[in-house]
Amino acid sequence: MPLLYPLVLSAALFGIGLYGVLARRNAVLMLLGVELMLNAVNLNLVAFDAWFADQLHTGQVLTLFTITLAAAEIGLGLAIVLALFRAVRTVDVDGVDR
């Protein structure tokens, strides 16, 4: 398989995730965009691991670490969003700074 297939897919997913983070008003859906960007990075790591084929399995082990960090990030992020919702009764990121 050409190495470019996963790399270009990853670039496309990263761009879509960036759009989601910047354009969504709902804070929970903003976090979904961040997850999509992290997944694009995972795709890159796995593709370069399969291409480079080193003894340490660096890319795939780092992918596992990224998945763990993404889980920690979404847990903490949703806790912050829920605290925000309790404080101002909205998750609209434009409405928070009133």
Partner: peptide, 18 residues
């Protein structure tokens, strides 16, 4: 469901992807 800077976001996402 989208903020006012939707088109800026679309351009930035497109620039990042390209």
């Amino acid at each position: 469901e989208v903020t006012g800077n939707r088109w800026t976001a679309a351009v930035l996402g497109l620039v990042a992807a390209v």
